[in-house]
Design a protein around this nucleic acid. Structure first.
Length: 216
DNA sequence: CTCCCGATAT
DNA sequence: ATATCAGGAG
């Protein structure tokens, strides 16, 4: 066992509290294949997972495979995902992304970060979600709006840049924890530590959170 | 940095 | 009315 810094011990304390609160938490996005998870994750940008699941329920009946999305009529696809917002960008990216899956990856979602982030509309956050949740590959730590906000509030990072936050978390957390740490923080971010009105009195981490009692 | 954008809570 | 929601690209 490698020696651990005070920051790593603090991160372990946070991890223990999250495990106790959310023992069985997992990805909230609903899917039946890696391709579907990729599409759902693209749709989840600046949209609630609840709304994404409403849309994908019917969407995945009409489009099942990468080939289906690659052949989609763009206005039809736009209309089908309209309620998730950014629907023109998302529809264009999903179609182009799946066209490339068919052309270069045999219709499958690649299992490495470099190939994934080359896909249109797929950044580091989406790539980490797909690798971790569809394939169980801990390629990094998913840093979305919830993870960014809460790690900053807890003092696990001083940065507000998602890329730098992930670099900090990669050092603070053992690789074994990477995938589920994000799932738990995201769930915690929706239910307790939300952006506008955090429910600190209900938070199990209030005893050591440096933000409790601090305004703004 | 800006733009993309509908649904919901406050 | 406004902030925010499992971001990414130009």
């Amino acid at each position: 066992m490698a020696p651990r810094s005070p920051e790593q011990l603090y991160a372990a304390r946070v991890t223990r509290a999250l495990k106790k609160d959310y023992p069985d938490v997992t990805c909230a996005l609903e899917f039946e294949s890696p391709v579907q998870l990729l599409v759902a994750t693209i749709l989840s940008a600046q949209c609630t997972d609840k709304q994404v699941n409403i849309v994908t329920r019917s969407l995945f009946q009409k489009y099942r495979t990468a080939a289906d999305f690659a052949a989609a009529n763009l206005p039809d696809l736009e209309n089908a995902i309209k309620s998730t917002g950014y629907f023109r960008n998302k529809a264009k990216n999903i179609k182009a992304c799946c066209q490339r899956l068919v052309e270069r990856h045999g219709g499958e979602v690649p299992r490495n970060l470099d190939d994934l982030v080359q896909l249109p509309g797929v950044g580091r956050k989406t790539a980490n979600v797909v690798l971790g949740t569809a394939y169980g590959i801990a390629s990094g730590v998913v840093v979305d709006t919830h993870v960014a906000r809460i790690t900053h509030r807890l003092g696990l990072t001083k940065s507000s840049d998602p890329v730098k936050i992930e670099q900090d978390l990669l050092v603070l957390l053992p690789q074994k924890e990477w995938i589920n740490f994000s799932h738990r923080l995201i769930y915690h971010g929706r239910s307790v530590c939300n952006a506008r009105k955090p429910r600190c009195e209900e938070c199990s981490m209030r005893k050591f959170c440096p933000r409790v009692g601090v305004e703004a």
